[in-house]
Design a protein around this nucleic acid. Sequence first.
DNA 1: GGTTCTATTGACATTTTTGTCGGTAACTCT
DNA 2: AGAGTTACCGACAAAAATGTCAATAGAACC
Lengths: 198, 198
Amino acid sequence: MSIEPARRVRRSPEAARENILQSAERLLLERGPQGLKLVEVAQGAGVSHATVLHHFGSIDGVQTALAEAMIRQLVARVLAAERPDDPEAQLEGVGQVLFDAFESAGGARLAAWLELTGETRRLTLVREAVAEVISGPMAQKGVDPERATNLILVAVSLAMGVGLIGRSLAELVGRPPETTREAALAFLKSGLAAAIRV
Amino acid sequence: MSIEPARRVRRSPEAARENILQSAERLLLERGPQGLKLVEVAQGAGVSHATVLHHFGSIDGVQTALAEAMIRQLVARVLAAERPDDPEAQLEGVGQVLFDAFESAGGARLAAWLELTGETRRLTLVREAVAEVISGPMAQKGVDPERATNLILVAVSLAMGVGLIGRSLAELVGRPPETTREAALAFLKSGLAAAIRV
DNA sequence: GGTTCTATTGACATTTTTGTCGGTAACTCT
DNA sequence: AGAGTTACCGACAAAAATGTCAATAGAACC
């Protein structure tokens, strides 16, 4: 009975990186930044930790790449929301998508993580996304850029807060977890409507 | 020339813990959760790492104690805002204080940290604070508890978001860092006024 | 002064985490 | 089939981080 060396899976470099990053993301969302250990990431991806190093150089490399990928994902998701529908529906839609993006995809935890680790400097993607929204759907509705920017800042911050602590906050005061999100959405909607109408 | 053993500082247990926790808080705010290492905490406090262990048992002990202390601080700060002044001023005041608490004292980073590490279960303090606000100033203004709770959920979430990413978000779109905070404050104020008036 | 208590510490031990290196195996191309 | 490329892995090395322990030294009290 000789010991069979396990059959290797050989991926393309891109696929390998992708696979590893998925594992890393899972870990980040489940256990937080502390849980982002080399061996665990490797285990979750079904590879040896040496392989992770081969593709990313170091654990910091993994973190950076992960942040990059998640930001890209988040921005794309939000931008996908701008469709030239009727204003009301779109208003609602933007709110929905924004909250979704920050909650379900772990966007809030990502942002928090970035902020906590001080990686917030080089977020060109985000800047571009904001610019796009301001010059796109907002301007189209006749909102002046100054005000539009402010609205976006508030909306994103709110989405961030809700996505991060909304659920546990609601549970903390004995309400169903979606309560915060719903309340915030209503609040945001009426506020936006008021701000645009003026 | 014999080597003098450095003179020891002997503190009371409480003072020693306090001293260490201050160092830990500084580190948490400056470098994030990753930077909370035993030796660094000790160094910052001017003691040996063995001393830290003597007082807190383990690094987790430090984290738990730190979280506890910071939460206590945050809640106290917010609750200090409920004074029976005139409604308008108080409205403004509560917003101010809420945002202050979450921004300056690192409350947002604390909350984010707690959330990321999944320590959100046993936050009795927060629950009690919310209950106090609901049955206190809110009820006094005739806001029904259901609505009051929702408002608080939204306000806290917003404060959280602003405190965490407000500054860098504003800078990201080329505005002065306080922009987000000011916009959010205005937004919150008008929203609150509207909600209460109805 | 002497005694007691314990906060403090340096030195050591253990565990965890990260990184290195030579060889192996999967895939492509000829 | 043979050769070249390189993703992959096991084993080892190094570093970092946490934890243990016996001895020391402040401070209070007698």
